[in-house]
Amino acid sequence: MAERRWSARDCHEFFEQRPWDSVLKFYQLVVNGQIGLRDLRIEHNEKFEDRCLETKQQDEDKSLPIVDRSKERGGRWERRTFKIVLSYSGTAFAGWQKQPGFLTVQSVLEKQLGRFVDGKRASNLEKQGKIKEALVSVAGRTDKGVHACGQVCSFYTWMRECKEEDVKSAVNSAMPTILRAVSASEVDRDFHPIFSAKWRRYIYIFPLRSRDEIDVSKVATLLRGLEGHSLSYAIFARDTKIARSSGPATVCTLYHARAALAKLPVPNEENVMVVELVADRFLRKMVRVLVSTAIKEAFAGANDDALVALMEETDRRASAPPAPAHGLCLAEVGYGNSQARDCLLRHCQHIVKNTKV
């Protein structure tokens, strides 16, 4: 029998009043490189036969073009582009995007990478009496509180003596405990973190007071119904117009949407629910609203296609308010083919075998 659906206030109280400290501690260890997301102790069922998750770029190599410097070219072709994979603690920053008076990931990076700015840009900044700061592009601007262990950004320089290890060292010397360059590599000058990306992968960790507090199998079934469909997720977005004839499209394709029980690899091994989503793109706050709405609908005993049915709604009050930002982590940005073996939740016992995709 269906239960009463929660109000926005009910949702806020349920999401906020729980043991988040262990989740934050886990993410801090991930950011520092002491452990990884794969250290989560997820309950698997190896008998579950998973479908292979594939994007449309099936024949594309996951690696980026290798830069060949054996044939140097002059002029504008001397510009060099570096790709940086970042890990950072979201609770330490006011989001990614630079904002006057606030500590953001972009502001720290552009200042640190300013040492590699030269040429015309350096001259212009000097004439304007401004400090040298690099121009950094990013795959996805994370909100305040959202963590990352696979964020991708890039910047360019004309300095021939700039090396990959120099770039990595410059980033890692800024705020060692909360911001880390996982890798830095020179890529083809046509590379762009946003436009070259084929998919993004997010992980949401939701702490549980007890193992049976949430029907994780129901949450998993609700999310699984979104897999393989290209749908408008406007109802699950925030800070954007729900109906619009111009601006960015609201249609996204979810390649992978799963949920499972797990234990954190920290003292006391707290029970958590882990949600993993992979899509070609995500709208503003879309992941957090999907997670909260799936939990809300699970408690209400909704039909298995409840999330798909919500796509027809025009009032965002039909979906739940966003789940807390500090449970979310940008795990990876992909620049090629994505398969199920790359995902964290592949053989989860809480996923029904005959769920239609």
Rank of each mutant, 00 (worst) to 15 (best):
D39F: 09
T355L: 12
P19R: 07
A174K: 14
A302K: 03
S63E: 13
A257F: 12
R244G: 07
L222I: 12
R38W: 06
T142M: 04
H350Q: 13
T142F: 01
S292Q: 08
C153Q: 06
V171L: 05
C252Y: 00
Q151D: 02
R180I: 10
S89H: 11
E165P: 01
S232M: 02
S154M: 08
L283P: 03
H347N: 10
K296L: 12
C52L: 15
V171H: 00
L29D: 09
E332H: 07
N32T: 07
D59Y: 12
H12T: 13
L53A: 15
A320C: 06
L222D: 04
H229L: 10
E126I: 05
A325V: 02
H347I: 03
L254P: 06
G228Y: 01
Q106P: 03
L307A: 02
S230W: 05
E49I: 06
L37K: 03
G33R: 05
L310C: 07
S87E: 01
N354L: 13
P324S: 08
L40A: 07
Q28G: 05
R211N: 09
K120G: 00
P324T: 06
P248F: 02
P100I: 15
V152H: 03
D10N: 13
H350S: 11
G301S: 09
Y27G: 00
R76D: 11
K56D: 08
Q349G: 09
E43Q: 13
D239S: 12
K83E: 05
S338V: 15
A249E: 13
A300V: 06
N268I: 03
F102N: 13
E269Q: 09
C343S: 14
T157G: 01
S217G: 09
V289H: 04
V187L: 06
V23S: 04
L24W: 01
L345P: 14
Q28E: 13
K241Y: 14
L179W: 00
Y233P: 02
K62T: 10
V333I: 14
Y233T: 04
W158D: 12
L264F: 00
R141L: 00
V182Q: 08
G301T: 10
P176G: 08
L53W: 12
K263P: 00
L231E: 03
S232D: 12
G95C: 11
T314N: 05
Q339H: 15
E313W: 04
G114W: 09
D10I: 05
A181T: 03
G90C: 09
D118M: 10
V278E: 10
A139T: 08
P324Q: 08
H256F: 05
P321Y: 11
V85M: 04
K127I: 07
R189F: 10
K296Q: 10
A318D: 05
V85K: 10
D10Y: 09
E13D: 12
T314M: 02
K168Y: 04
A279E: 08
R281H: 11
L86G: 10
W20H: 10
V136H: 08
G36W: 02
Q349L: 14
S183L: 02
E3A: 15
G301W: 09
F93V: 12
E313F: 10
L29P: 00
V117H: 02
D280R: 15
S232R: 10
T55W: 13
D68P: 01
L24H: 04
P322C: 03
S230P: 02
S22I: 00
L264G: 01
K198Y: 15
I214W: 07
A323L: 11
V30I: 13
S70H: 07
